[in-house]
Each structure stands twice: as structure tokens, then as C-alpha cells.
Amino acid sequence: MVSSAAQTPSSSVEQARQEGALQTALALNRLLNPFKIEVKVLGSTAHLRGEVENEVERQLAERVALATRGIETVQNDLKVNAELIEQPLERRAYAQRLEDATLASIIRARLLWSTHTQAASIEVDSREGVVTLRGQVSSAEAKELAGVLASSTEGVYLVNNLISLSAADMARLREEHQELIADPPLSDAWINDKVQTSFLYSRNLDGPNIKVATQDGVVRLSGEVVSSEQKTIAVEVARQIRGVRGVDADMLKVATKVSG
């Protein structure tokens, strides 16, 4: 075990980074965020202390720790206390509000990144995975795409698409869209980041297995997906990002099923 006195500045920074990453992962987990879990990282070992309601949550906390980069072993000192069932209700409600706010922000970001919805004024409200969209757009295509972007986002269970169309807003948004077209082109780095992030947010894709490279607005996808349907979805998700001039998916392979 490495003592704090023997730690170098770089190891202390890395320890703090790992502790912060693990604490964030625990806080974002909807099963674990109601509980007060203390985290300490020494070397590659994470120490967990506190109380959870049952053994399932105790083991889940350990798996979350092991999934954190740089952590190889876990000293799990979490105690199981069945009487916690009534205590975390207020924290659960608070955690749900945070989760709803995060989900709404993710959807707003995806709408902003999209060519068809970037200029639209769309309100996004999330309540326990039920998302309501309100506002006005310039075309039925934009309304449909907004609904698709919301419903395909991880964590969304139902979308109420209350977006409307009006002649005045259609004319105004067309003018705004023309102004946006005149803007300087978006950088390849920006496009690359938004395509990759959109893959990670999509419930229908295994984002980490899809590699993205962008040059002169042309997005090239490589890696492997589990089906031709996933490949089609990946192409469509990339194509609707602002600044994308084309999508090349020749190197994105569909996994071959092994029989027997």
C-alpha cells in the first residue's frame, strides 16, 4: 500500500482524478445515487465505504468501480442495511430531478447539432424518462427528426411530440437557415466530436465500437456493428449532423455470426 507521504505530485493528481471519476459514476447510477458511498483510491485499488439497501447494490458499486479507468481491484466495505428503504426517498427524488435535467440537456444538444433542427426553438422537458417537446419548426421533416432524436436517446421511454408548424415561423426559420448557411464551415474536429457523441447517446448503437474520422466534412466510419440495421442507423445519425457533406461507411463492417 502506498502511503500519502510517499506519493508524488503526479500520483496524487491521478488518485484525485480516479476518485472523482468513480464518485461521478456512482452519482450518475440511478440505483446507487441515493446512497452515501465514500470513495478512496490508493494505487490501483478503490476502497468503498458506506451503506446500501441490499446485496445487489453492494455488488453493483463494486462493478462500477472496476469499470473506472486505472482501478484494478476493489476493497468493498459497503454494509447492507435493509432499513435504508425509507431514508433515501428524498435523495431519490433529487437524483431523479438531476437525471431529468441531464437527459433534457442531452436532447437539446443533439437538436442543436442537427442540420434540420439547429435553428428551431424547441423546449425539452423530461420527467422520469418521459420527454415532451414543444415549439415550432419550419417543416414536418424537422418535427419528425426532433422526435426521432429524442426517442433514440438512451434513457428516454416515451416522447410527446407537441411541436407545431406555423406559416410565420416557417418564413422566419427559413431566413435564419439561410443566414446559418452563410456562416463559416464547421471544423472537422467539431463534426467528428458531435458524430461520436451522438453515437454514444443513441440507445440503438454500440458507440465505442464505431470509429469516426472526418476530413473536409466527409465522415468515414469504421469498426464493427452487430447488424445491417445498426449500420444504417449509424449512417443516418452521422448524416444529419451539421456540417457533414457525406458519409462513407465502407469500412464499417457487420459482425459475422458464428454457428455452433
Rank of each mutant, 00 (worst) to 15 (best):
L112I: 11
F35V: 06
A6G: 13
V41G: 04
A95K: 07
R17Q: 09
I85W: 00
N192Q: 14
L205G: 05
L98M: 11
E154R: 12
S138P: 01
A25G: 07
Q178G: 07
S164T: 15
L111A: 03
R239F: 07
T8C: 03
V156P: 02
N33G: 01
T256M: 08
E175R: 05
H116I: 01
P184H: 05
G243E: 05
L111T: 00
R220Q: 12
K257S: 10
L98N: 13
G223A: 08
R58K: 13
T117Q: 09
I181Q: 12
F35C: 03
G135H: 02
I163L: 06
S126H: 02
S114A: 15
N160Y: 11
Q59P: 01
D216H: 14
V247I: 09
V56I: 07
G147A: 12
H47N: 11
L186Y: 10
V74R: 05
E154S: 13
V258A: 10
V235E: 10
A213N: 14
D169G: 07
V156T: 05
V159F: 02
W190V: 02
V56L: 06
T117I: 05
K40L: 10
T214Q: 04
D100L: 01
I122R: 02
L48D: 04
G20Y: 09
D169E: 15
Y157I: 08
A65R: 01
E57I: 02
R239D: 06
R17I: 08
S164Q: 15
T256K: 12
A140I: 03
H116T: 08
V56K: 12
S138F: 01
A213V: 11
A249N: 04
S11L: 04
R174N: 11
E19S: 10
R58V: 02
Q178I: 04
L78M: 09
Q23Y: 07
P185G: 08
Q18G: 06
V131H: 00
A150C: 11
V52Q: 00
S166Q: 09
G43S: 04
L103D: 02
L60M: 03
S105H: 10
I241G: 00
K79P: 03
L78Q: 03
P185H: 05
I163G: 03
L28M: 07
Y201L: 15
E141F: 06
G207A: 11
L205E: 02
Q178L: 14
E53P: 01
Y201T: 05
Q75R: 13
E224M: 14
S105M: 09
L173C: 07
V258L: 13
I107G: 00
L32K: 06
